[in-house]
Amino acid sequence: MNIDSIKRGIVLDHIRAGRSMDLYRYLHLDELECSVAIIKNVKSNAMGRKDIIKVDEDISIDLDVLGYIDPGITVNIIENGTVREKKHLSLPERLTNIIHCKNPRCITSVEPALDHVFVLADREKGVYRCIYCDSKH
């Protein structure tokens, strides 16, 4: 694929092979009216195989969600047919209402108005903990 073929939009590169449909759902790309291309199992020197998503419009993407799902993804912002910006992701320090606490003893289980907030406890292992009850996710 040639990302330069997009005039203005976003290319999500280095997606772990097989995860592109998960991202498509998490980022609600099905709700967009512009063209969205999902390219699966592309040959990659670094990854063996990878997926790529191309969005033919400059949409705002929640980088925290993206970083949580797959911190290895590269976000390319395309303008006038060239890469204007390349963003390398990492696991976000804090996640709000992206994952939900499943501990029945946690206050979030009885207070529906509370935000579900997790903080990164172990970057190496990708462990998040609920700020209220310390449960692991």
């Binding site: 003893r105 009885v110 209220y132």
Partner: peptide, 10 residues
Amino acid sequence: RHPKEGAPLA
């Protein structure tokens, strides 16, 4: 004091 974990933080 509250029976649910994290209630005082909330």
